[in-house]
């Protein structure tokens, strides 16, 4: 909003008075919102009739045209779990290394950050092929939920590291000095001082990454596979929600109804996870961040 205000300030006074500028901004805002609501209403409208308890708890039948999506939900949850369990510690550790131990303009930190920038902008299908070669073939994990989760981890790791690094850098100098003046070790500083401060921003970055991972299709086609049976373990192949949507719309004639249902369910799941993570961190953090003044 500040940026908008600055732009508005540049506009001559008379033009401002003419309502031309403000109506222009209103129009763009309304257009973006309309586009979003159009998509959402289309998904809700077409997907709502597919939703039922059977749809959530049953196995798919007839290539997904009928039946439910229970195994697909389980596979998706497993893939996301593996993805977050691997990325979170790695991202926080790497971010802490860059932010705390290496000076900001040291060439090593510049190299790491440039590489992360590039990695963050690589198309997901490239990650899929990479995961296929490294996890499925070289490490012998085959088409499995584990390979899929690890590939997604590689994909969202750069974004997560970059946002966490920013967070650690923005932690006020006051805490840094305070911790240093008490001769606290880096370990204590990270776990007891920085992490509590950083939790809200880290969560925001994590939700962003998790959203991207949930919506990912291309990277999973080559790694976790297509199989829509209930997985026995993480070494089984499993179909993620996004792949199910892709498959139903592209390869299964007459499957679009259930595809809409799956899409609606995916949006609901994302909404629920995001808001519950937000709620949890706020609750947990409320006691710590509330300022008196």
């Amino acid at each position: 909003m500040n940026f908008l205000k600055k732009i508005i300030m540049l506009v001559p006074y008379k033009l401002k008075q003419s309502h031309f500028v403000s109506s222009f901004f209103w129009m763009t805002a309304i257009m973006v919102t309309l586009l979003f609501f159009w998509m959402l209403s289309s998904i809700i409208g077409d997907g709502f009739q597919a939703l039922s308890w059977e749809f959530i708890f049953d196995n798919p039948s007839d290539s997904g045209r009928s039946g439910g999506i229970a195994p697909i939900l389980i596979s998706t949850v497993l893939i996301l779990l593996i993805c977050s369990l691997t990325t979170l510690p790695l991202a926080i550790a790497t971010a802490f290394l860059i932010a705390e131990f290496i000076p900001e303009n040291h060439f090593f930190s510049i190299i790491i950050k440039r590489s992360l920038d590039i990695l963050a902008s690589i198309p997901s299908i490239v990650y899929g092929l990479f995961g296929n070669i490294v996890f499925c073939k070289m490490m012998g994990l085959g088409f499995s939920i584990l390979s899929g989760g690890l590939t997604l981890a590689c994909m969202i790791l750069p974004i997560l590291i970059l946002t966490s690094e920013q967070t650690f850098r923005s932690i006020s100098k006051a805490h840094r000095q305070g911790s240093e003046a008490l001769a606290l070790s880096k370990f204590t500083t990270l776990f007891q001082v920085y992490l509590p401060c950083a939790i809200p921003a880290l969560t925001a970055g994590f939700i962003l990454g998790l959203g991207r991972a949930t919506a990912e299709t291309a990277a999973l086609i080559f790694t976790s596979g297509y199989v829509d049976r209930m997985p026995d373990s993480v070494m089984d192949s499993g179909r993620a929600l996004s792949i199910h949507i892709y498959d139903l719309t592209m390869n299964v004639p007459g499957g679009s109804n259930n595809a809409y249902g799956t899409a609606l369910l995916m949006i609901i799941i994302l909404l629920i996870t995001n808001s519950s993570i937000n709620w949890l961190t706020q609750r947990w953090n409320h006691n710590l961040t509330a300022q008196n003044d």
Binding site: G178, S179, A181, A183, Q192, V193, P196
Partner: peptide, 19 residues
């Protein structure tokens, strides 16, 4: 470490940790 244990520092802006 010993030096900073023996020399306490108070800063301009109160900086209690978030705990």
């Amino acid at each position: 470490i010993l030096l900073r244990k023996k020399i306490g520092t108070i800063f301009q802006k109160p900086n209690p940790f978030p705990m």
